[in-house]
């Protein structure tokens, strides 16, 4: 039995002047503990698909099953990380990371201690009482990761979480996020348009083609790359081979 199953997802946006089909015939299975990347040109409906999996949007057609059940937002099955950190500027770091637990009323001393210790494991000491604007971009995104993990979601969704960061910070965070997810054996879906990031972090890469968004091709990442942390994987000879393969495939998708 698969952990996450998408069956024939189709989604159409309606406006006064048009009906745009953003996604068509998306069927997909993800195993528990697997890290999958969605790669594709902009406008291929990747973010829409994430919102559908998270249960934020109802698809026009099709079903999403998590452990054979529909997704339940109230039970925090799903953690969602956005392009920017979206830490609440009027809340302290501690209030921010405990927000999810507060929302679903499961905050207790044990969970609080657990979350604060996770913050320290991310290399953030003595920032609990600070406000987000006192932290750098990389630190803020780490805080956002702690906030997402605090509710112990079964499935983690990362919507281009490193795209707003500088390259060096991004590489460091890739390693940190990858290690953290492996350690907790979390299943994750990463949306990106950075081929290198997709190869370095994931077990499987799914290439989307645009208008309407469909699954074009799926690339398994060789185990030599999978077992290495992202930064080391980038230096492996197999990395370039896969990079070129996906690059060519993406080129062929570009409209003339």
């Amino acid at each position: 039995m698969d952990f996450l199953t998408l069956k024939g997802i189709q989604h159409t946006y309606f406006t006064v002047s048009s009906a745009t089909t953003a996604l068509k015939d998306i069927s997909l299975e993800v195993k528990e503990g697997e890290f999958v990347s969605f790669l594709g040109p902009s406008g291929c409906g990747k973010t829409t698909l994430l919102s559908i999996i998270a249960g934020l949007i109802q698809p026009t057609n099709g079903k999403v099953l998590l452990e054979n059940k529909p997704v339940n937002r109230a039970e925090n099955d799903i953690g969602y990380m956005l392009q920017q950190d979206y830490l609440f500027p009027w809340k302290t770091i501690e209030e921010n990371i405990l927000l999810g637990l507060k929302i679903n009323r499961s905050l207790d001393d044990h969970k609080r201690e657990q979350t604060l210790s996770l913050l320290r494991q991310m290399g953030l000491q003595n920032v609990e009482a600070d406000y987000p604007k006192q932290l750098s971009g990389g630190m803020r995104q780490r805080v956002a990761l702690v906030r997402t993990l605090a509710t112990e979601p079964k499935l983690l969704m990362l919507d281009e979480p490193f795209s707003a960061l500088d390259f060096q910070t991004k590489l460091k965070l890739e390693d940190l996020v990858s290690n953290t997810l492996k350690r907790f054996n979390k299943t994750a879906i990463l949306v990106t348009h950075d081929i290198g990031e997709a190869i370095a972090m994931s077990d499987r890469i799914i290439l989307f083609s645009a208008s309407p968004g469909t699954i074009h091709k799926s690339f398994p990442v060789p185990s030599e790359l999978k077992k290495r942390p992202p930064f080391a994987a980038r230096n492996h000879p197999l990395f370039n081979d896969l990079f070129n393969l996906i690059w060519k495939e993406l080129e062929s998708l570009e409209p003339e």
């Binding site: 937002r73 953690g79 979206y86 609440f88 929302i103 509710t151």
Partner: peptide, 23 residues
């Protein structure tokens, strides 16, 4: 997107108002 963050935690409309909109 602040609302989106809260919704992924399963927040109700009332909680969205109290945690994001009002402050």
């Amino acid at each position: 997107n602040f609302i989106k963050v809260l919704q992924t935690f399963g927040a109700t409309r009332r909680q969205c108002f109290k945690e994001a909109i009002l402050p």
